[in-house]
């Protein structure tokens, strides 16, 4: 079996050379990273969360460091769906030749439906990742993902207008993530991805004020890995659709743990920001790490730790 085949996974009917997916918001539309390495080695990547209108996002500061992680409160800065289709995707296609994961966000049911249906028609798009879990915007984003009935209704509405596999990105900022995962599965989602960032904050002690202009931000980075792993394990044990695991993944070992917990593919976020070559390094490290744990092929370990 060749090296590539050992890493092969199938996510919602689409074959991937490996399960590694840079997470939305940490990889732009890929160009910055394409200058550093051939991004076609990736399984795919999830591009910057796209909304109907162009958004500047929140005021700065938007970033704060934490132990083994960081807070961000970018607030879905993006050029809007028209510009994404007209300008970003053609440019992206020059450097990335595989099906891409399109991350879609919104502030109303109509917006999710409109943006998803337009993005769905783009040839380069393999999957739609519906972000109902952004913690940094008000009156949208996470508001849809923290209540089972609203999550269900937005997924149902989007499901009706898209043909591509629909993966719903879930928030960890809920009492019971399994309940939300089951609701979106029932509404027709083809997969779920989790976790989005954990809501947090820092205080500037000199100014006696919140460090982030938005007051709160999403916590990501190595510190959140155990929380993410636990949620992936719980959700994977409760739904039949594939789970994409993310949250603090920084090494090939973390990828293997996520997959053993039940993830079919694994997204890598904050680590790309401290090591721009992180995804390349993880892909390169996977075969040797698999050998160390006696793993012949990755797809065989999906959910191996489930009871």
């Amino acid at each position: 079996m060749g090296e590539m085949n050992r890493l092969n996974v199938n996510l919602c009917g689409i074959d991937m050379d490996n399960p590694i997916i840079p997470a939305s918001g940490t990889f732009g539309f890929g160009y910055e990273f394409a200058e550093l390495y051939d991004i076609n080695i990736l399984g795919t990547f999830s591009f910057k969360g796209t909304t109907r209108e162009a958004r500047f996002g929140n005021a700065t500061p938007r970033i704060a460091e934490c132990p083994s992680g960081m807070l961000n409160a970018v607030g879905l800065q993006n050029p809007g769906v028209d510009a994404v289709i007209a300008r970003e995707l053609p440019k992206m296609k020059e450097v990335f030749h595989k099906p891409v994961m399109a991350n879609v966000s919104g502030f109303s049911l109509d917006e999710y439906v409109e943006v998803s249906s337009r993005i769905d028609k783009e040839d380069c798009v393999g999957w739609i990742e519906l972000n109902i879990s952004c913690p940094n915007v008000h009156g949208g984003g996470m508001a849809f993902g923290t209540c089972a009935s609203s999550a269900e209704s937005v997924v149902k509405a989007v499901r009706e207008v898209v043909k591509k596999p629909l993966i719903v990105k879930l928030s960890p900022n809920v009492t019971n993530i399994v309940e939300i995962a089951k609701a979106v599965e029932a509404a027709g989602a083809d997969g779920v991805s989790l976790i989005n960032t954990l809501l947090g904050m820092r205080i500037d002690m000199r100014k006696k004020k919140p460090l982030l202009a938005n007051v709160t931000g999403g916590y990501s980075g190595a510190a959140v890995f155990p929380v993410a792993l636990r949620m992936v394990y719980q959700v994977a044990g409760a739904v039949k659709i594939p789970v994409v695991g993310m949250g603090g993944v920084s090494t090939a070992e973390d990828v293997i743990e996520m997959m053993m917990a039940g993830a079919t593919a694994v997204e890598i976020g904050a680590e790309n920001l401290r090591n721009p070559w992180a995804c390349r390094d993880i892909i390169n490290a996977l075969p040797e790490t698999m050998d160390k744990y006696g793993i012949t092929d990755l797809s065989s370990i999906i959910g191996a730790a489930q009871p």
Binding site: T26, K48, F56, T60, R62, I63, N72, L273, R274, P276
Partner: peptide, 12 residues
């Protein structure tokens, strides 16, 4: 800044 190389949109 988050990344320093244009990926995270932290310093817009």
């Amino acid at each position: 800044m988050g990344c320093g190389f244009g990926a995270c949109m932290g310093c817009s």
